[in-house]
Design a protein around this nucleic acid. Structure first.
Length: 357
DNA sequence: AAAGCGGGGCT
DNA sequence: AGCCCAGCTTT
């Protein structure tokens, strides 16, 4: 790239950022730990969603040592509803590794930092540039979109084969005098100005530098690649009452909704009724015999790779002792105690029906 | 290289 | 209904 063009882009972005940057909680700290927490939460998650979670998390775990001495149960409760729960588990594990092996200091060496669970190219570059002024370009979805337009890069954003090109382009544009601000400027510009649909080209200070704008190809960039349609799964779930307590089970720590608590249930088979599936799944998962009573709710929920329709039934404990198959733990709890446990959002959609009955 | 992994907001 | 979001890990 011509050095003149390079400097013009850097200067325009930095000027734009000074004027338009948002006042965000994690921009008011120099703590590498807090910046790291924010970056983990911001993965695939919009700023407005993250803000209240970030505040609660920092209030509950103000320092890395506070987090490291906590446990998964407590961390998931704060993370409840934010999604991608492996982020929380990895953050906890990484904090414990740092406390044990690095005397509580976040590694400033990229290769060392990248070995921690949950730390990939983006988190590594973002945290080390913002907290320690290290010269690494952070490449997220915003940056790839901005680069696609600015440099007219017609490569599918979601393909791993394209990452090398985007990373190289981003590194070339990084302002090495202020890499942390430079990275944030690129991302903020993508979030506020060079937005996915209908970018604000009319008032864009970079439009004379933008190859897509100059060639009238903004509408075709970025190249989003392809994706497939998601299937729908039908699930039956039971709220099993034994006197005034209900049964909850805990999911295995890895995989979908790892470590969260839920009401037992499972997929409805072909040629199977929802009630029959409810009875069968509870017996298979917990070994308990129940009777299936009232239909409490039908809940719809969308995940990344599938949609689910959940039929929820009130059930009554009949007999047997719990022998878990699938879940890794269980509790009999009162309705009032439910809010002490972290549940998936799909469960929260019907839990309010259980209050005071 | 592709799939798995949440949830919310916007069009 | 589809698309997108301050991505990482596993296979």
């Amino acid at each position: 790239m011509p050095p003149q063009r390079l400097r013009a882009i850097q200067k325009a972005l930095m000027t734009w950022y000074r004027i338009h940057q948002r006042d965000l909680p994690w921009r008011r700290t120099r703590s590498a730990y807090r910046i790291w927490v924010s970056e983990v939460m911001l993965q695939q998650t919009q700023v407005e969603t993250v803000i209240p979670y970030y505040r609660r998390f920092i209030r509950r775990f103000p320092s890395l040592s506070a987090l490291a001495s906590s446990d998964l149960e407590a961390v998931l409760k704060v993370w409840e509803g934010l999604g991608y729960y492996s982020r929380a588990r990895h953050l906890l594990e990484a904090s414990q590794i740092i406390a044990r092996d690095y005397r509580g200091r976040i590694p400033r060496d990229l290769q060392v930092f990248l070995r921690l669970p949950g730390v990939g190219d983006y988190i590594g570059a973002a945290v080390l540039s913002i907290a320690f002024q290290k010269p690494y370009a952070a490449v997220d979805g915003n940056v790839k979109r901005v680069l696609s337009r600015l440099q007219a890069i017609d490569l599918p954003m979601n393909a791993s084969a394209s990452s090398r090109v985007f990373k190289h382009a981003a590194q070339a544009l990084l302002d090495r005098d202020a890499p942390g601000i430079s990275n944030q400027a690129f991302m903020e510009f993508g979030a506020l100005q060079c937005i996915p649909r209908n970018p604000l080209c009319n008032c864009c200070p970079l439009r004379r530098l933008c190859k897509a704008y100059q060639s009238n190809t903004v509408k075709r960039l970025p190249n989003r690649g392809s994706r497939r349609t998601v299937p729908t799964r039908h699930v039956a779930v039971g709220v099993v009452y034994n006197r005034d307590r209900v049964l909850i089970t805990r999911r295995a720590p890895r995989g979908l909704l790892g470590g969260l608590w839920e009401f037992p249930g499972g997929a409805i088979g072909a040629d199977e009724s929802a009630r029959a599936a409810c009875l069968r799944e509870i017996r298979e998962e917990t070994g308990l015999s129940v009777t299936v009573g009232d239909h409490l709710a039908t809940v719809r929920h969308a995940y990344t790779h599938f949609k689910v329709v959940i039929d929820v039934f009130r059930c009554a404990y009949q007999g047997g002792t719990v022998h878990l198959s699938g879940p890794v733990d269980f509790r009999w709890v009162s309705i009032a105690e439910l809010d002490q446990f972290a549940f998936p959002s799909a469960n929260k959609k019907f839990m309010h029906l259980l209050i005071r009955r």
